[in-house]
Each structure stands twice: as C-alpha cells, then as structure tokens.
C-alpha cells in the first residue's frame, strides 16, 4: 500500500504538485490513510474548531457540533442539520432573464430563459459561490448528497461515531414549516 506525505497531498489539492509526482499518486495503489490526512489538512484550513466528519465539498463540511451534525462553510457559517438540504439555508441569486444571463453568457452563448434558469448559491458568511444549478423552472434544488455517516464510520472505517442518527432526508420537513407559516 502506498503512503504519501501530507505536504504532497496538500500540493495536490491546490493543483501545484509537479506532474511527475501527481502521476505517481495516480498510478500507485491507493493510500489507506488518505481520508484521515485529507481531514487533517481541511481541519487546519477551516476557521472553526468543531471536528470535521466529512468534507461534503471543498468548501462545505459536515461537522460534529455539540452532539449535532451540521453543515459548515470553511468560513464557519452554519447551514444546519446535514439531513436537510443546506441550500435552504443559503443565499441564492437566480438568473432567469436575458439581462442577468447575459452577464455570463454573451451573444450566441445565451441559453433560453424560458427553458432554463441559473441558480447561484452564495455563502452568507464569506460570499463564496458554493454551487451553481442550471434547471428549468419547477425543479427543486438538487440535494447532492445525503451520506450514511454511521455506516461509513462503523462498517467502512471500523470506528463507529459516538452517537448515531437515522440517515433520512429532512428537507421537506423544513418546507412544511415554511408552508405552515405562509
């Protein structure tokens, strides 16, 4: 089993590892401690102290916070329970007409605004553009990933988390609350 230096993994993540070394990583059998090293690197890069359980994206992390599992941005902004689509706690900017789409796509590049809208999800804490969706009106936002964290830690990594929670999608519960408050 291969083993790579944490410093090289950091360079790889940042896209600055020289190509021969990158090729070496690509071609070698995978390093079994990669996840732990990756978490370690990310933990050093975030502004919060809570333990990262899973890097959901390069910017968003599921963390253990006072017994709860919540999604946090690198900047520390809290998006709430990981079982509810974090986009519901995000800022959103939607381009659904020629003027706003035209800021990105010019002339022949312009999509048809009656067929598609561009949704930009912005972190309220740091202004990072976290995800962009291109969807026709009516499409609910993608809940990209609902991990089965307990299975992952207990069965795949062999080190169960201290507590366990049911891996169920809670997004519609939030919607129901909003709907009731309408």
């Amino acid at each position: 089993m291969a083993e790579f230096h944490k410093a090289d993994i950091e360079k790889l993540i940042d896209g600055v590892l020289p190509w021969p070394a990158t090729q070496d990583i690509i071609k070698s059998p995978k390093d079994s401690d990669r996840f732990d090293k990756y978490i370690e690197i990310m933990q050093e890069r975030v502004t919060f102290k809570e333990t990262i359980l899973l890097p959901l994206t390069p910017m968003l992390f599921i963390v253990s916070a006072d017994g709860a599992r919540v999604v946090k941005c690198r900047c520390g902004h809290d998006f709430g329970d990981y079982r509810t689509n974090w986009k519901l706690s995000s800022l959103i900017h939607v381009r659904d007409d020629e003027a706003s789409l035209g800021e990105i796509y010019k002339g022949r590049e312009m999509p048809d605004p009656s067929w598609t809208q561009l949704r930009e999800y912005i972190c309220p804490g740091c202004g990072s553009q976290l995800e962009v969706e291109a969807m026709p009106r009516g499409c609910p936002p993608d809940f990209e990933f609902l991990p089965d964290l307990d299975t992952f830690y207990s069965e795949w990594l062999g080190r169960p988390l201290p507590d366990s929670v049911a891996s169920e999608d809670k997004t519609l519960e939030t919607i129901a609350d909003w709907s009731a408050a309408k």
């Binding site: 900017h93 048809d112 067929w115 912005i122 202004g127 026709p136 009106r137």
Partner: peptide, 30 residues
C-alpha cells in the same frame, strides 16, 4: 457584492412557487 445581491433561499422560494403556480415564463416544452 454577491452577498448584497443574493436573497435568502426562503424568500426566493416564496416568490418562485407563485411563479411556478402561474407557469410564468415556462416554455410549453418545459
């Protein structure tokens, strides 16, 4: 500028659902 220009998702959702209900600017193909 992004933070200033964007709105909370809930706010957008409340307006967007009325546009969906009215089938506003939705091509027949959609």
């Amino acid at each position: 500028e992004r933070i200033a220009k964007a709105v909370p998702f809930k706010e957008w959702w409340a307006v967007e659902r009325t546009k969906i209900e009215a089938r506003e600017n939705m091509d027949e193909a959609v």
